[in-house]
Simulated assay, not measured.
Amino acid sequence: MSIRLGIIGCGLKAASYARTWTGSADAPQIVALTDTSASSIKRYSDIVVQSGADAPKVYETAEALLAAEKDNIDAVYISTPHIYHQTYAKAALAAGLHVLLEKPMALTADEAREILTARDASGRTVVVAYQSSLSPLIDSYRQRIAAGEFGELLSVSGEVWEHWQERYVGNWKQVPELSGGGFICDTGSHLFNAVLQATSRSYTQVAANLGNRGKNYELVGGVLARLDGDIPVTLSFCGDTTQGCESALTLYFENAIVKIDIWGKWAELRQGNQTIRNAGGEADGAVLDSFIKVIGGAPNPSSAEQSLHLAELWDLAKQSSEQNSAALALTSSI
């Protein structure tokens, strides 16, 4: 199934996806683009044209694109600074379009609820582009965990680190008015989501200690949380360290230990003295393929409800840090 897409935001991530999407067997028709950067528009348009397709139309604003093209496209992919996710998602849904939305879906739980309300009113679909939610490797372990293959889940720990402070100097990601936060709000959200995806359990409680190292956004932090079933979770975040970006999520079971890269690049299973390592990585076109399947009626592996839960978790993590790491209870679930 090939779909007609509008692109709102043509930055590096969008361009990376475009190279894969335009070369796939069921390449989407990229109908229209909008971005505030002329160079980003040109790069994206060049990718489309070099694939042999017609050049997409270009609009100055998302509002203009939606008004002119809502009857000519099936969906939009939104890859803008985080602050605009809610506005553009709601506008696209109101125009009767399906939405593939970069993470985080929203910056607060209230914003997330507004997106769910707009989605329900439109009868359309929202899929949030978390790689852990769309990873075949992580999904295979999720199914094995859910089937009880490794026994009872006892504890979860995880970490994510990146030279985020150096890497994004001068970028909108380090402007809280555009990003909604710092490293933990951005890269760190993948770790929060991977816990949900691997365990199929909701967070029930969170206590956090967030540090900013003199900046006006968080760069380091520790989170103690609990999942359904009173499962303890310990998460560590560092966005101001040596070059690179890596992660690991470790799940301790009665009969095994499972380690997973939060982007689905690899997984490691230890049972007794035997260790099995699996390579994965995001399958070519996995994000778009999953989106198309959901539009066609398949279960949504990265739903708006899940992102609402993550938005509430982030709200409470910030509140907890301001309240000397007080333990706060969540009201939403996945």
Results as ranks from 00 to 15, higher is better:
Leu134Met: 15
Gln174Leu: 03
Arg113His: 03
Val58Gln: 13
Ala92Ser: 15
Leu66Asn: 11
Ala146Phe: 04
Val58Cys: 07
Gly11Pro: 07
Pro28Tyr: 12
Arg277His: 10
Ser236His: 12
Gly244Leu: 08
Gly9Ile: 03
Ala14Cys: 14
Ala106Met: 03
Ser2Pro: 02
Leu196Ser: 00
Ser132Met: 03
Gln174Trp: 09
Thr34Phe: 05
Thr87Tyr: 12
Ile83Lys: 15
Tyr59Arg: 00
Ala38Pro: 09
Ala279Tyr: 11
Val223Pro: 02
Val233Ile: 07
Gln197Ala: 06
Ala286Gln: 12
Glu305Met: 09
Asp284Glu: 15
Phe150Glu: 09
Thr61Asn: 08
Ala129Asp: 14
Ala207Thr: 02
Lys90Asn: 12
Ala118Asn: 02
Ile47Cys: 07
Gln323Val: 00
Val220Pro: 00
Leu235Phe: 04
Gly96Lys: 05
Trp314Asn: 08
Val156Ile: 15
Ser247Gly: 10
Gln86Cys: 10
Tyr252Pro: 00
Ile7Lys: 05
Glu149His: 10
Tyr59Cys: 07
Lys57Asp: 11
Arg226Gly: 01
Tyr252Thr: 14
Ser155Tyr: 15
Ala248Asp: 13
Gln50Cys: 00
Glu322Asn: 10
Ala68Phe: 06
Met1Asn: 08
Glu69Trp: 06
Arg43Asn: 13
Arg144Met: 10
Ser45Thr: 15
Tyr88Gly: 01
Ser332Cys: 04
Glu60Lys: 15
Ser24Ile: 01
Ala92Gly: 13
Thr87Glu: 15
Arg43Ile: 12
Leu12Pro: 00
Gln243Ala: 14
Glu162Gly: 06
Val76Leu: 03
His163Asp: 15
Glu254Tyr: 00
Ile292Pro: 01
Ala327Gly: 03
Pro28Asp: 08
Glu159Ser: 13
Ser45Trp: 01
Asn300Glu: 07
Glu69Pro: 03
Tyr168Met: 11
Ala95Met: 05
Thr20Ser: 14
Glu312Gly: 04
Ser332Ile: 02
Thr250Asn: 10
Ser16Asp: 02
Leu107Met: 12
Ala267Met: 09
Gly229Cys: 07
Val195His: 02
Thr234Arg: 13
Gly297Lys: 13
Leu178Trp: 06
Thr199Ser: 06
Gln165Leu: 13
Gly244Tyr: 11
Gly148Thr: 11
Arg144Ile: 10
Glu246Lys: 06
Gly148Met: 08
Asp186Glu: 14
Thr87His: 10
Leu101Thr: 09
Gln197Phe: 07
Ser51Ile: 08
Leu316Thr: 07
Phe291Tyr: 09
Arg4Trp: 01
Asp289Met: 05
Arg4Pro: 02
Ile73Trp: 02
Asp46Asn: 13
Phe291Asn: 03
Thr187Arg: 08
Phe192Arg: 04
Leu196Cys: 09
Val233Leu: 05
Tyr84Trp: 14
Gln271Gly: 02
